[in-house]
Amino acid sequence: MTICASSSSDSTGSETSRAWIVHGVVVLAGAAAAAAAAALYLRRSRNLRRRVVGIIPARFASSRFEGKPLVRILGKPMIQRTWERAKLASTLDHVVVATDNEKIAECCRGFGADVIMTSESCRNGTERCNEALQKLGKTYDIVVNIQGDEPLIEPEIIDGIVRALQGAPDAVFSTAVTALKPEDAFDPNRVKCVINNSGYAIYFSRGLIPFNKSGKVNPKFPYLLHLGIQSYDTKFLKIYPQLPPTPLQLEEDLEQLKVLENGYKMKVIKVDHDAHGVDTPEDVEKIEALMRERNIQ
C-alpha cells in the first residue's frame, strides 16, 4: 500500500494549526501569569499602609500658652486626656508621646504612656513625629499626628483619616475638616480649608477662605474648619524635613502648606465634630464647662 506524501498545502495547514496551538498556549499562560500577578498585587495592596502608629507631639514652650500639655482639665493633665482618647482608636497599633521636655515626659510615664524624647530643634509637630518615628525602632506605614491640645478628639476621626489615607494611594497626607462656626470666621487660630470635588485639599489659611467681595461671612456658604489631626505615609514623612520652607507656609505659619506647595496630594475627610481646641488659658474653662455638660469625667 502506497502511502501518499502530503501536499504542500496540507503541510502549510498543519504548520498553521501548530502555530495557533502554540499561540493559544502562550496566551493562556500569559493570562494565567497576569491573573496570578493581579491576585498577588491585590493581596499586597490589602496590606499596604496597614501598620499605624499614633504620635502625640508635646512641647513645653509656647508663645501663646507655655506648659500647655500639663494644664489640668477637670483634674487630669491635658496630654493625658488626649492620650486616653487616642488609645480608643481601633486603627492604631501603638500610641506614643513625643516631647522635648522632661516634665512632660515624667508626667506621661506616670499615667502609663510610652514616651520618646525628641530634640528642641524640631520646628513643628510633623518634624517631631518624624524624629520620634526614627527612634521607635519599629516599621510603620502610617504615622498619625494627634494634636495634644484637643482633649476631646473623637477616636472615630482618628480612624477616619487613617482609612482615608489607606484608600488614596496617590495621597501622602490626610486630615479632617468640620463646619466652621460663623463666630470663628475671622479668628486666626481657627484654620480654614478649601477642597476640590474629589476630596483633596486645595488650600489652608488663617484668614477666611473663600473670601467674597462683600468682605462679610456668607451665612449660606459651607466654610470648613481644619482639625489639627493629620496622618502621613511614613516614606513621605522622612522626606518632609528635607523640603525647604515655602513662601505660603512661612506667610501663613501652616506646615501643611509646604506639602501642597511641593505638589503632594492631601486627602481630606469631612466630619461632624464640635471642635474644642485649647489655644489660650481662657479655653480651659470652656472645655471644662463642656465636659461637665456631657458628664465626661
Rank of each mutant, 00 (worst) to 15 (best):
residue 100 D to W: 03
residue 271 V to W: 07
residue 214 S to V: 03
residue 295 N to K: 14
residue 104 I to L: 01
residue 17 S to P: 01
residue 78 M to S: 02
residue 40 L to P: 02
residue 252 E to S: 04
residue 232 Y to Q: 07
residue 50 R to F: 11
residue 228 G to S: 15
residue 176 A to F: 00
residue 50 R to I: 04
residue 59 R to C: 09
residue 10 D to T: 14
residue 266 M to T: 06
residue 275 A to V: 07
residue 33 A to C: 14
residue 113 A to R: 06
residue 287 I to R: 00
residue 80 Q to D: 08
residue 269 I to K: 02
residue 81 R to N: 05
residue 2 T to R: 09
residue 262 N to Y: 06
residue 94 H to S: 12
residue 155 P to A: 07
residue 16 T to E: 14
residue 85 R to I: 05
residue 54 G to S: 06
residue 48 L to K: 13
residue 280 T to W: 15
residue 124 N to I: 01
residue 234 T to N: 10
residue 167 G to L: 09
residue 282 E to C: 12
residue 156 E to S: 15
residue 66 E to R: 09
residue 250 L to F: 05
residue 8 S to T: 11
residue 236 F to A: 08
residue 222 P to K: 12
residue 74 L to Y: 10
residue 161 I to H: 02
residue 292 R to F: 02
residue 263 G to W: 05
residue 111 F to Q: 13
residue 6 S to L: 12
residue 266 M to S: 07
residue 80 Q to Y: 10
residue 275 A to T: 03
residue 90 S to I: 12
residue 78 M to R: 01
residue 7 S to W: 03
residue 283 D to M: 08
residue 255 E to D: 13
residue 265 K to F: 02
residue 221 F to P: 06
residue 289 A to T: 15
residue 294 R to K: 15
residue 70 L to N: 07
residue 282 E to L: 13
residue 190 R to H: 14
residue 94 H to M: 14
residue 136 L to M: 06
residue 11 S to W: 10
residue 43 R to P: 00
residue 47 N to Q: 14
residue 186 F to M: 12
residue 247 P to T: 07
residue 155 P to I: 02
residue 96 V to Q: 03
residue 127 E to L: 00
residue 224 L to F: 04
residue 47 N to Y: 01
residue 274 D to N: 15
residue 272 D to A: 10
residue 80 Q to C: 07
residue 7 S to A: 11
residue 56 I to T: 08
residue 240 Y to I: 03
residue 105 A to W: 05
residue 143 V to C: 00
residue 175 T to G: 05
